[in-house]
Computed example of a mutant assay.
Amino acid sequence: MKTSIGIKQENLSKVAEILSIILADEFVLLTKTKKAHWNVEGADFYNKHLFFEQQYNQLDEIVDAVAERIRTLGHYAPGTLKEYLALTHLSEHALETNDSLTYMNELLCDHESILIHLRENSNNFATQLHDAGTSDYITGLLEMHEKMAWMLGSHLK
């Protein structure tokens, strides 16, 4: 679908390409957070079960919004596990334990990785690709991930 919103088509393609990587990262993080929700064990099970549920609900909204941003720009969003695993910066580790601290450390590292990638691209969207809307959107994502990372990190102190 060709979109005429005042951004060159080649720039829209590059923005969609970068957003597809972000979408893959968000989807993998969502999946890992659901795994933590389902499998956490220990004396703090109930509280952490609810905590992880809050975080995966936020991530589910983010995944949907990133995919819709890609569609808004006239491109198709990746939507298969194979595509996500080929695009993501995150890795899937087989954790040896199912305690909350192990999950929280893993998820915090993933949020930090996503934050670095978002920061690397936020100015690029506005300055080089002339897409202030996506740049603004990415700033909002940064704020959400910063808060989620802060919440995870606060449990680890």
Score class of each variant (00 low, 15 high):
130 H>K: 13
123 N>Y: 10
123 N>I: 11
89 H>D: 09
94 A>G: 03
90 L>T: 05
82 K>V: 14
38 W>L: 14
83 E>T: 14
51 F>R: 02
62 I>A: 10
127 T>A: 08
94 A>Y: 13
108 L>R: 04
85 L>K: 08
82 K>Y: 08
81 L>K: 11
41 E>F: 11
65 A>R: 12
117 H>A: 05
49 H>F: 11
117 H>Q: 07
100 S>F: 05
110 D>L: 01
60 D>S: 12
73 L>Y: 06
83 E>Q: 13
53 E>M: 06
118 L>D: 03
40 V>F: 10
44 D>S: 12
85 L>A: 03
106 E>K: 06
133 G>K: 07
68 E>R: 12
130 H>W: 09
42 G>M: 12
115 L>I: 14
108 L>Q: 06
49 H>V: 07
68 E>M: 09
72 T>R: 12
111 H>P: 10
92 E>K: 13
85 L>C: 00
110 D>H: 01
94 A>N: 09
119 R>A: 10
94 A>P: 05
121 N>S: 02
77 A>E: 15
109 C>F: 11
75 H>V: 11
89 H>F: 06
53 E>A: 07
86 A>K: 13
56 Y>H: 03
45 F>W: 07
131 D>N: 13
49 H>K: 06
75 H>D: 04
127 T>Y: 14
48 K>G: 00
54 Q>V: 11
126 A>F: 09
38 W>K: 06
40 V>N: 11
105 N>T: 07
103 Y>G: 04
56 Y>V: 00
56 Y>M: 00
126 A>N: 09
65 A>H: 04
99 D>G: 08
56 Y>G: 01
107 L>H: 02
119 R>S: 04
89 H>I: 03
70 I>R: 03
124 N>G: 09
39 N>K: 15
115 L>M: 08
66 V>I: 14
77 A>Q: 03
114 I>W: 04
84 Y>E: 10
119 R>F: 00
45 F>H: 07
124 N>Y: 15
111 H>N: 09
128 Q>V: 13
39 N>S: 15
91 S>Y: 15
42 G>L: 15
53 E>L: 04
93 H>L: 13
66 V>N: 00
84 Y>C: 11
99 D>M: 03
114 I>C: 06
133 G>S: 08
79 G>L: 15
97 T>V: 02
86 A>D: 12
68 E>I: 08
64 D>T: 08
60 D>C: 10
62 I>W: 01
75 H>G: 02
53 E>P: 12
45 F>V: 05
56 Y>F: 11
119 R>G: 01
60 D>N: 09
74 G>A: 02
65 A>P: 00
90 L>P: 02
90 L>Q: 01
112 E>M: 03
51 F>K: 00
97 T>N: 05
77 A>S: 15
121 N>C: 00
123 N>R: 13
113 S>W: 04
96 E>M: 04
104 M>A: 06
127 T>V: 14
47 N>W: 10
114 I>D: 02
76 Y>E: 14
85 L>G: 01
114 I>H: 03
61 E>V: 13
68 E>L: 09
40 V>T: 05
129 L>Q: 04
110 D>V: 06
49 H>S: 10
131 D>P: 15
84 Y>H: 13
44 D>K: 12
99 D>R: 03
114 I>Q: 08
